[in-house]
Computed example of a mutant assay.
Amino acid sequence: MNSQNPKNEISRRKFLQNSSLATAGIYLGILGMPKLFGNVLMDKEPKGIPDVKLNNGLKMPMLGFGTYGLSGEICQKSVVEAISAGYRLIDTAKVYGNEIEVGKAIKQSGIDRKQLFVTSKLWVDDAGYENAKKGFEETLRKLQVEYLDLYLIHRPRGDVKGSWKAMEELYKAGKIRAIGISNFDPAQLADLLSYAQVKPVVNQIETHAYFQQSNDYKVLKQHTIQMQAWAPFAEGSNGLFTNETLTQIAKKHGKTTAQVSLRWHYQRGIVAIPRSSQKAHIIENLDIFNFKLDDADMKAIEKLDLNRTQFPEWS
């Protein structure tokens, strides 16, 4: 992600469902698989988090754990708890300044590296062919891994063409299992596609109930590029966690507004990467696969779209 602030982890407890948030609740079965995202196929597993098949054939969890805003021991502890709870997609970036802690957490978790889907991002300072390769190697060293599952250009700034060429070479060499982009608008995506030899598998962009990115959603579907949401809760801005519409839907299903928000992303076929340093929230965010939003719910949430970014500094 790019902007998820711990200070906004507020008011969520007010809407806890009556049932327990025990980890076992995560495994009550997966209902209502999302619609196909373009030609990308959804796979269904009997337990845990479903996968999406990306346009290069690689499988990626439909729900991950974001680490923006987490640092030091809190970051390491949170990632360990997330992996223990069942997350397998872990998202970080150079600019987050926590790749070392994320790497330590991966080691501490004891999970086989092959079972994890690790994402990091190339920052603007490392744009360009040679710099991108150096930046990538630095990320590997900090994370203490031999490869990345997904590497993204974090922002469409600087020598994007040179960066993409370097990433394509790293991908073809097997150092990265998939390459993608973040914060690219349709025009910037079109420019990249004009010279790319390898199509990006993901575009990670700001997406939530208040900024639903309908045009980007359609464009990415057309290109079979997976849409991934950073700030899936809009950082709690505009009172998202206490929004009347989301609150009523949450009560209807015996869930929380956070769970409704994540389920909404899931049913749109969008991968979300919520972040939390609270164990209860980490577990709560996983418990979204045992209920389904109906058409009335989806239409009500659609009406919440303000069609504008909540984070203009990233636009």
Rank of each mutant, 00 (worst) to 15 (best):
L193F: 06
P34Q: 09
K94S: 15
A234K: 08
R155A: 13
M60L: 02
A22R: 13
N98Q: 11
D294Y: 12
L262A: 04
D51A: 05
N285K: 10
K7Y: 11
Q213D: 05
G25L: 07
K14A: 14
V219W: 08
S20M: 07
L152K: 04
G32R: 09
G57E: 09
I176E: 11
K199G: 06
S109Q: 10
E81D: 15
L306N: 01
F233D: 04
E302L: 12
V124W: 14
G32K: 07
K59A: 05
I270N: 01
K142Q: 02
T224H: 15
A178P: 06
Q310H: 04
T242A: 08
Y217F: 12
D112T: 11
P34L: 08
F15H: 15
H223F: 15
G72V: 02
R263T: 12
P200W: 07
N131Y: 07
S78H: 07
K77G: 03
L143G: 01
K59C: 12
L286S: 00
A105R: 03
Y217L: 07
T139G: 06
W314H: 05
Q259I: 01
K77L: 10
P274A: 01
K133P: 03
A178F: 08
E244H: 12
R263K: 15
D43P: 10
K104F: 14
K14H: 15
F291Y: 04
K299N: 13
F37D: 03
P274W: 01
A258S: 14
Y195N: 03
M33W: 14
G64Q: 06
T119N: 01
D125W: 05
V219T: 10
E302R: 14
K53Q: 15
D216R: 12
Q115K: 15
A234H: 01
R141D: 12
E206W: 00
L140Y: 00
F184W: 08
F65K: 08
R177E: 08
N243P: 01
D294T: 08
K303I: 08
E9P: 13
H265N: 04
Q108F: 13
E146M: 09
L306R: 02
E73W: 14
R308H: 13
S214W: 11
L246R: 00
V160F: 04
K133T: 10
P312Q: 09
F233P: 13
Y96T: 03
I205M: 03
D185C: 12
A24S: 11
M1G: 09
Q248T: 12
Q197F: 09
L143H: 09
P61H: 01
I249E: 04
A234G: 03
P61S: 05
K104E: 10
K218P: 07
L152M: 01
D295M: 15
K94A: 15
A105F: 05
A127T: 09
A132I: 01
V95Y: 09
D159F: 05
G128W: 06
N18F: 11
F291G: 08
L116P: 06
V118L: 12
A24F: 05
L28Y: 11
M227A: 10
G180D: 06
Y68T: 11
W264H: 05
K121W: 08
E302A: 13
Y87T: 02
